[in-house]
Write a protein that binds this DNA or RNA. Structure first.
Length: 278
DNA sequence: GGCTTATGCGCAG
DNA sequence: TGCGCCTAAGCCA
């Protein structure tokens, strides 16, 4: 599931497999033929994830930008490369390994200024060590938009998708419709710390798991895609509503309207007997 | 095997 | 606001 943790893993694996190697590239589907021709035969200097964006830097000032969108996916294997199947947008390979890209929203060769422009429009990425949570909070604190919408806005926060959004709000007892400016600095600080831990855990596992161990056998998530099912904590049916064309999931009891209760719940979770697992 | 739904985002209008 | 992307997991038969 391509939220930030997935892209971060891809970048890490591309560095492991391709960095420092002369990389062959083609586009059996033909849609990226010109771009693949530009990459073919160059050495990968570095792969890097920023939010949900993946960048490859090749020698000769050639940059590849990939955004998986909803359907995109990478597959890998090697050394023998299989015959092309389906709409295969891009293949990258060396003597030892191959990578296949299908269904991506964006797959393009860009110039350095274009790469910089993409990076500049992204908010802080919780998976990056130097990320500044205050940059996100500045946007949140001056917005009347629902916090659920702000968390998905990649210019506020980079790498968070629908799953982390829903689960983070549940874990902190926050009503998804709480306006950004009602979220206090203290609350944001706790949420950010939790989000960093959740996303790092996602990188480690290769999947999103947000429930505490006590609930984990019943579900990997508290509310995401659990419409109508009982809330793991209080039993109330999980609610769904479409917000900005995306499904929003929440528990109306555990996520009361606004601030006061939030601190209590966050503490409860952090002090839980199983919290060491994070 | 078929059907439904989905993690995202840019674009048309 | 709704569509296109065109894959894959999860579900049902």
């Amino acid at each position: 599931m391509p939220e930030g943790h997935t892209i971060y893993r891809h970048a890490r694996e591309h560095n492991r497999d391709l960095r420092g190697h002369m990389v062959r590239a083609d586009s059996p589907q033909g849609r990226f033929a010109a771009g693949a021709a530009l990459i073919d035969g160059r050495t990968l200097l570095r792969a890097e994830a920023v939010g949900k964006h993946l960048f490859h830097q090749y020698d000769g000032q050639v940059w590849l930008h990939v955004h998986l969108g909803l359907y995109g996916n990478w597959r890998t294997g090697g050394p023998a490369m299989p015959a092309p199947r389906g709409a295969l947008r891009l293949r990258l390979w060396t003597e030892q390994v191959w990578w296949e890209l299908r269904g991506a929203t964006a797959c393009e060769v860009l110039t350095r200024p274009e790469i910089t422009a993409i990076r500049n429009r992204l908010g802080p990425d919780p998976l990056r060590r130097n990320a500044d949570p205050e940059r996100a909070y500045t946007r949140i604190a001056r917005s009347r938009a629902p916090i659920a919408a702000l968390l998905m806005d990649q210019s506020v926060l980079a790498g968070v998708g629908n799953v982390y959004r829903a689960e983070l709000l549940f874990r902190h007892g926050i009503d998804p419709y709480c306006p950004g400016h009602e979220v206090t600095s203290e609350q944001w600080s706790v949420m950010w710390t939790d989000l960093v831990a959740l996303m790092r855990d996602g990188v480690r596992r290769g999947r999103i798991v947000t429930t505490e161990p006590a609930y984990r056998r019943r579900s990997r998530s508290y509310v995401y895609r659990r419409t109508g099912e009982p809330c793991l904590v209080c039993g109330t049916p999980v609610q769904t509503q479409v917000l900005l064309a995306r499904n929003l999931f929440w528990c109306p009891v555990c996520q009361p309207h606004r601030a006061t209760v939030i601190a209590d719940r966050a503490t409860e979770i952090e002090d839980g007997p199983e919290s060491g697992a994070w």
